[in-house]
Design a binder for these strands. Structure first.
Lengths: 179, 179
DNA sequence: ATCGTTGCAAATCATTTGCACCCGA
DNA sequence: TCGGGTGCAAATGATTTGCAACGAT
């Protein structure tokens, strides 16, 4: 779980200090492909620096984001998720659990120019985000509906974490119309 | 400012009641093309129903969103913005002030199928959101940089609301890396 | 009359911040 | 040493919710 990629950060040149916490957080974000949340990063970080605080994790993530080293995905009422992948790519985000998955879709990137022309916006290289139901949540949803049809309570007994940390609230399932 | 479009909501058929507040909020969202926030909707709503509360506005917006009558754009630390346009379309969002603008980009919609194939996600018809700097914020940014270069304080004296309610915090300007 | 709705205020929750102590350069 | 960093706890700010009064059907 430890194959850091972008470790050559010139902390010093920006008047910043290289600390154990910063190196660790950066390493954790970059060695994951499941777009961790601040909370899950904290959990993993504490295995190596037990005393590290959530505030430091958030401060570091913001710093890295501002330096352009990582991306942040926020919105939809879920905690933000972070992406340490540096190359230009796209994403799909599950509307039910908030999970984010990378995809490569060069065709999509070409459209930025078109958009810029039509809108007067200086369109940036931010990745495009598609929305949908991930396979796990779709299965879970079918399960819930089956249970309901059978007069069940709507929550299956032993179905665990389809995606990375699903939303527990069944009523928030498939919040149509938001992103 | 009052050319409601989608007023034929079958409140009753869903066990919901038709109230003055709901009609008003729906009408306000649908008659705007600038993607208002809950707060700005409240402000306008109070001109007709002085006693209407923010809670009711939020409750109504959520309801409408869940019924698929409007879209919600959240994230990036800004209050959500709502879109009453019903047809399938795309958006550009300003990373500096949060303003959202509609665009029509049929080519983009065709990609949903490709994405679904590659990711196992059941990709939904949610509009795609591009990110960039809107013309007003780009001008504002240039202005700020000019002022800084001249030893100014970084905030020009009389520049007002470039977009719809810009973020006042200069330091949050151009938060590279988030959406 | 019933039961969904509203207003108000209090509660949430992710994220940020003030501050005193700590540590990297 | 010295100013940036960290942990902790308290503060923010958008959005939600509990509850009693209200009003649509």
């Amino acid at each position: 779980v430890s194959v850091p990629r972008e470790q050559h950060v010139d902390w010093s040149s920006a008047g910043l200090r290289k600390t154990r916490q910063r190196e660790l957080v950066l390493g954790l974000v970059c060695s994951h492909c499941d777009h961790p949340t601040a909370e899950s990063i904290l959990r993993e970080a504490r295995r190596q620096i037990p005393g590290i605080s959530l505030a430091t994790v958030y401060r570091t993530l913001r710093l890295l984001k501002e330096k352009g080293l990582i991306l942040e995905f926020s919105g939809g009422g879920y905690p933000s998720r972070y992406d340490g992948t540096t190359h230009d790519h796209e994403h799909v985000r599950c509307v039910a659990c908030g999970a984010v998955q990378d995809i490569d879709l060069p065709e999509a990137r070409e459209m930025r120019g078109i958009v810029a022309e039509r809108t007067k916006f200086r369109v940036s290289a931010y990745p495009l985000v598609f929305h949908g139901l991930c396979a796990d949540c779709e299965a879970r949803r079918a399960e819930i509906e089956r249970a309901r049809a059978n007069g069940g309570c709507g929550r299956s007994k032993e179905m665990r974490m389809p995606c990375t940390e699903i939303a527990e609230d069944v009523d928030r399932f498939w919040p149509e119309g938001s992103w």
